[in-house]
Amino acid sequence: MEYYLGITQTIGVHTLLGLSAYVLLLTGQLSLAQVGFFAIGSYVSGILTVIFGWHILPALLVGALVAGFFAFLVGFPALRVKGLMLVVATIAFSEIVRLVFFNVNWRVEVNGLEVGPDSTQGFREIRYFAANGWEQAHVVLLIWLIVILVMVLLWWLDKVRAGAVLRAVGEDELAAQSSGVNLTMVKVAAMTGGGVIAGIAGGLFAHSTTYVDHHTFSILLATFAVSYPILGGLKNVLGTLMAVIFIQGFIIEGLRFMGDYRNILFGLLIIVAMNFRPQGLVDGNFTSDLRKLLRMNQKRGGIDA
């Protein structure tokens, strides 16, 4: 049971990370800065609950906002670079954030215990949940409530004009500009929104695993984040969720016996997806295929449609 809850937890956090990259991909920005925002969210919210004794919800919120603020700042220089250069620049950002936290040492005594970020040792004992009597199922519930909230929000965004504008920018910046779209505003807003979502993910991750260190915030994690919406397609948010379930649930967990070869498989999968299904492996067609499949099953079950 605990094992499955653990996977569910991971899938939830990774879905948020994937969605944060999804928002940026809509505007055509391929960013590996999401792990940097994730790191900021985890340290800030962790510090707030551990050192300042805050409740988890305001701590997550402030962590997300601080991450969003940094994303806002990153958004402006990011406007000037595209494609591969943006990838490189955002990797650099994530690495800087990682190295900064590598050096944060802020140890205080709380209830006779020394706690807080311990530079190279990472940030351990982020024990808000255990200390406040949360069971793992409650934690999973909290994570998934937030995942659903974010998914519903993004789903709604796609139905209003702002969503169409985001996609227009992703398709053709020049045409969007010439149609009156303020590119700066839209791209910075997307970066900020993505930063907020990654920040929440970071806060949830830090508290559910109780520790983070600089290994946590690897470029591999950033690669995972962008690969979910790439594999899942940009048709809607469900694609990203499907991709996370597939990669985390099946490739990483299901094929555990393959060890590090899973990463090769993961890489191959992305290459295949980019070459043969640029719109994603599980895109809108997937949902309609699924619907057809369900209808078929209904018929088999004897219900006449």
């Binding site: 004009r161 169409a164 504008v165 996609r167 227009a168 398709e171 053709d172 020049l174 045409a175 969007a176 010439s178 149609s179 009156g180 779209v181």
Partner: peptide
């Protein structure tokens, strides 16, 4: 555009994956 200038392109540049309706909605 706010001052009232708009244009078309020599090589058509639509938002191809958006619907016809959305193309106008954006602009």
């Amino acid at each position: 555009i706010e001052f009232g200038v708009s244009r078309t392109f020599q090589n058509i540049r639509l938002f191809g994956d958006l619907t016809v309706w959305q193309n106008l909605w954006v602009a």
